[in-house]
Amino acid sequence: MGNEVKKLCFVIGSLERGGTETHLKRVLPLLDRRRFKPSIFCFVRKGELASALEEKGVKVFEPVLFSSLTKHSALFKPLLLVASIFSFISYLLRNKPDVVHFFLPASYLLLGPISLLHKKSKKLMSRRSLNVYQQKYPAFIRGIELWLHQRMHGVIGNSQQVVNELKADEGVPTNKLHLIYNGITVRESSLSQREQIRVSLNIPPDRLVMTIVANLIPYKGHLDLLNACGQLPTRDWILLIVGHDSSSIQGELEHLVEQNNLQDCVHFLGVRNDVTDIWASSDIGLLVSHEEGFSNAVLEGMAANLPMIVTSVGGNAEAVLDGETGLVVPPHSPEDLANAMKKLLKDNVLRHSMGKRAGQRVRQCFSMESCIEGYEALYNQLFLEN
């Protein structure tokens, strides 16, 4: 690869809080600066997490017209789209990145074709979900995506199921496919910290706490979860729901809480900056999505030594070993979910033993060090092949 520092450009819509955006926030500052210089091009706007990255020396760019037109984004949407394209072209010409790495479908579909004009850079795409999202697009959009796959130097999945789908359904050649799992930095919490957190959240000491960290989006399965909670025979537990009301469904969820008489058990916490502490205050972790790639939230719960109850979608069952580190249930099934919750709520020994094994597994298999090594090895390989 030589001694020169390689410039890496990561392309995404914005850095508003979400799983992929949080992943970039964690990964980019840890890349070896002696070999790599990362920056981010946001084709919509910088977003909430941009300042945290900029404080750590990662430059974040946004379209030049965004700041002046943002208040009229609906009216000027076509102009903003054009501004994004021309800003990206300008960015490529001025910064001359060695690698252009796309995250999330919108950035890939909009700017992937434009990036091909920049012949000197290597092109990568990271897929972080199953391709269910393609069903809402016209057929020609899927065609563009498949066409782009063949012109990438590498296509990365964050779970084996995503990688398998890219190969079988979308024809990505095996020699271009790479698997890089999400990674997490484990922070240990003491028993006294756990108690302090529970007091701050007004959680009675005798209550078991279940936690789900997921933005309020229909496919995240919150309706299934609340319907499952309605089937639980006791009310000696607390459910903490952490996440932004991204799809404006909190009112519907709160109505379901009232219908099931769960007002004393279910707490909507909204967006929190102390998610690690909330996991540490919990006894059971949950992720009940209808579709998923590979969830950071699952790893965070496991890192807090929690048994996780997850649905069998995406990479969930690659992280959570059913019956060993948690329980895996079918999606869209409140009854199966309720049975899994009952099993862990009533069995202290099983809950603690599964949680201990979950903590061991995340430390052994999904460390942030392993994730960083995966990215750096891939970037090095691109230039060795040159």
Rank of each mutant, 00 (worst) to 15 (best):
139 A>H: 06
187 R>Y: 01
119 K>P: 09
354 M>C: 06
87 S>P: 04
260 N>Q: 14
330 P>H: 03
371 C>A: 07
357 R>M: 09
330 P>M: 06
230 G>V: 01
377 A>L: 00
105 P>M: 03
386 N>Y: 13
175 N>M: 06
90 S>R: 10
119 K>F: 15
181 Y>Q: 07
91 Y>L: 13
118 H>V: 08
167 K>T: 06
27 V>M: 15
144 I>R: 02
210 M>N: 06
97 P>C: 13
137 Y>H: 05
355 G>P: 10
326 G>T: 03
172 V>H: 05
275 V>K: 11
329 V>W: 01
37 K>Y: 15
49 L>Q: 00
319 A>W: 00
245 D>W: 14
144 I>A: 08
239 L>G: 04
95 N>V: 06
249 I>E: 09
281 S>Q: 08
265 C>D: 10
53 L>P: 11
76 F>A: 14
17 R>Q: 13
31 L>T: 04
70 T>I: 13
286 L>G: 05
34 R>P: 09
20 T>Q: 14
250 Q>M: 09
173 P>L: 05
88 F>Q: 05
24 L>T: 01
15 L>Y: 00
268 F>A: 07
290 H>I: 12
357 R>E: 12
302 M>Q: 04
33 R>I: 09
119 K>V: 10
188 E>H: 09
359 G>R: 01
267 H>I: 13
19 G>D: 02
111 L>T: 06
99 V>P: 00
236 D>L: 04
178 H>F: 13
196 Q>C: 05
102 F>G: 12
100 V>T: 07
134 Q>H: 08
53 L>E: 09
313 V>P: 02
213 V>H: 12
318 E>W: 01
222 H>P: 12
287 L>F: 04
164 N>Y: 10
368 M>Y: 00
14 S>C: 10
270 G>H: 01
249 I>P: 08
162 V>T: 12
166 L>Q: 08
57 G>Y: 03
377 A>T: 08
48 E>A: 08
193 Q>V: 08
97 P>A: 09
211 T>S: 05
155 V>R: 06
282 S>H: 04
154 G>S: 15
371 C>G: 11
151 R>Q: 02
162 V>E: 09
7 K>S: 13
227 N>K: 13
125 M>P: 03
177 L>H: 07
325 T>P: 15
305 N>L: 12
190 S>F: 11
350 L>H: 05
170 E>L: 13
106 A>F: 02
244 H>N: 12
193 Q>R: 11
57 G>Q: 06
320 V>G: 14
146 L>W: 10
62 E>P: 03
135 Q>Y: 13
383 F>S: 10
348 N>R: 12
146 L>P: 00
195 E>Y: 11
12 I>S: 02
251 G>K: 12
98 D>W: 05
32 D>K: 01
114 I>G: 00
336 D>V: 01
15 L>M: 10
191 L>C: 12
379 Y>H: 09
273 N>C: 05
244 H>A: 07
85 I>C: 02
372 I>K: 02
17 R>V: 15
377 A>E: 14
191 L>E: 10
255 H>T: 15
310 V>T: 03
91 Y>P: 00
72 H>T: 13
48 E>G: 03
